[in-house]
């Protein structure tokens, strides 16, 4: 799954016009609502409800409880680790790039290309991204070979493997960092010069300004974006599948295999797996939306 930037808008709603026809105005959104119900909401509910049903359609917690078996728990655990790691590193790296572009005194013309590239890279996920990283960090990849031949560093001997936790995290960063850059650059731009100057003239050092003023102001944006990146990584199937096949047992791949009928015997366990995904990405996105609105209130 890829996520393009969604700049928040406090929309000035068109003035509501009262007319005699107003009672039938809802007819205008019937097609959209029908579409959303049939192809978004009902399919999802189908899964959610299925997670609490047994073979005969009776209510049960058994499926959800079955998630707590070692193989599935470990899949969730590694999924969460990869998502947290790639979101955290993506946030940190993206923050520094955004800060460099926004307030780092770089030549002004560099900003455009950086933002455009971020737009491209944040949408460059999926199978081709896996290929690119295999060609670069795989056993015969450019970087692997260069490091070995020029610097005598064998990263594979050091425990790195593109098909593992570290490799997947490194790969995910390719779309995580640019997404962070796209979201956080406007937020850093929003830091007013006067805030820094007011803090400094009151005696604060630059680190104090960042600790007491800038980072607290940015905090909702940072936390929200972290949650968004987490969900982004957690739901990513294609990159992981193309990179590792089914050798790395993470939740989306487990679910993929389950849907194809390869692995798990019990179809209702698949529902429970999917429910777990929805819950985790739902929580993450909930955090994103809540913190986002809080950040906007301040910046106003």
């Amino acid at each position: 799954m890829t996520t393009a930037i969604t700049p928040a808008e406090a929309g000035a709603a068109a003035p509501a016009r009262r007319s005699a026809r107003v009672s039938f105005a809802w007819l205008g959104i019937v097609p959209f609502m029908a579409f959303a119900l049939l192809f978004l909401i009902v399919p999802t509910l189908q899964i959610v409800i299925g997670a609490f049903r047994d073979q005969d359609g009776a209510f049960t917690f058994a499926n959800v409880l079955h998630l707590f078996q070692p193989s599935i728990l470990s899949a969730y655990w590694i999924s969460i680790r990869i998502s947290v790691a790639s979101a955290l590193l993506g946030c940190v790296a993206g923050f520094f790039i955004a800060a460099a572009v926004s307030i780092g005194n770089l030549p002004r013309w560099m900003r455009g290309p950086v933002m455009t590239f971020s737009g491209v890279a944040s949408n460059f996920a999926g199978v081709p991204l896996a290929f690119a990283f295999l060609a670069t960090f795989g056993r015969l990849g450019l970087v692997t070979v260069l490091l070995r031949d020029w610097f005598g560093v064998n990263i594979y001997a050091m425990g790195f493997n593109i098909l593992s936790f570290s490799g997947l995290t490194l790969t995910y960063l390719f779309f995580q960092i640019p997404l962070m850059v796209l979201i956080v650059t406007p937020a850093i731009d929003g830091l007013k010069r006067e805030w820094r100057e007011a803090a400094v003239i009151l005696g604060a050092s630059t680190p104090q300004y960042w600790r007491m003023v800038a980072l607290p102001i940015l905090w909702p944006t940072l936390l929200g974006t972290f949650a968004l990146l987490f969900a982004n990584a957690f739901g990513a199937v294609a990159t992981a599948f193309a990179l590792t096949g089914s050798s790395l047992s993470i939740v989306p791949i487990l679910l993929f295999a389950q849907i194809r009928g390869d692995v798990l015997q019990d179809p209702h366990l698949g529902y429970a797996l999917a429910l777990g995904m929805i819950v985790l990405t739902g929580i993450a996105n909930g955090i994103y939306i809540v913190t986002r609105s809080r950040a906007e209130r301040w910046i106003k």
């Binding site: 969604t6 909401i41 399919p43 969900a231 199937v237 995904m277």
Partner: peptide
Amino acid sequence: VIEFITMLPLVIPAIVIVFGYIRL
């Protein structure tokens, strides 16, 4: 309401949606 619905595909992973299609 409409905006919330349009944001849902960011919350629900594609693999879950298609899983629902297959069942439905």
